[in-house]
Every structure is written in structure tokens, then in C-alpha cells.
Design a protein around this nucleic acid. Sequence first.
DNA 1: AAACTGACTTCTC
DNA 2: GGAGAAGCCAGTT
Length: 104
Amino acid sequence: MPPLSFRDKIYNLARQIPKGKVATYGQLAFLAGSPGAARSVGMCMKQNPDVPRTPCHRVVASNGKLTGYSAGGVSRKKEMLLEEGVTFKQGTDVVDLAVSQWRL
DNA sequence: AAACTGACTTCTC
DNA sequence: GGAGAAGCCAGTT
């Protein structure tokens, strides 16, 4: 069984994020085995079209700020997270990581 | 094989 | 607290 590429690991990890929680790019990179590869993680997300395969909307920046979203923009992403029960800072596009960050 | 890109992160001003 | 610059990593061309 050949080792999965980082990209595949990221995909798999993103799928493991429970509903109502979010993970940071750095966290996924760390879990994938390469801390610091946050940028690469983001690139992989961008390549992914939409969610059925990888809920990239549950991935946010290290400070909880919502960054891009290939399928609808940050606004859409925020709405989806709110719908899942993720806590946001009032009046901002920042997730309250203290409450909604994915923990192992 | 080399160079460029990018949904990041962290530091400094 | 906000803006700018540098550094890191994997993928794509």
C-alpha cells in the first residue's frame, strides 16, 4: 500500500472533522504529518470543488478567521458553519476557536 | 528538474 | 490593533 499523498491525508482529515467544529490549516497539516504545511493544505482545498468529498468549509485560519472558499466565498462558508452550530465572534467572520475548534 | 504559485503562519513596525 | 515582509510546504506548470 503506497503512502498517501499529503493531499489525500488532508482530504481524509477534513472528513473527520465533526459537525459543529472547525480545524485550522496548521492543525490539519500537523495531523497530516507535516507541521508548517498550512499553505499546501489551503491549496488542496482550493482544488477540491465542493463538499461531498471534503468539507473544506470546516477549515479556517489559525486565528479562526475565515479565508477563501472556492464554492461560494467566505460568506457562504460562514453561513454553513453557523448552520452547523459553530460559534462565531459577533459581527465578524472569525470562529470562536475557544469553543468550536476541533479537538482530538 | 527548476521555477512559480497559493484558501497559511508568525514576526516586526 | 492594523499593515507589511519573510519563511515553509506540497502541488502544478
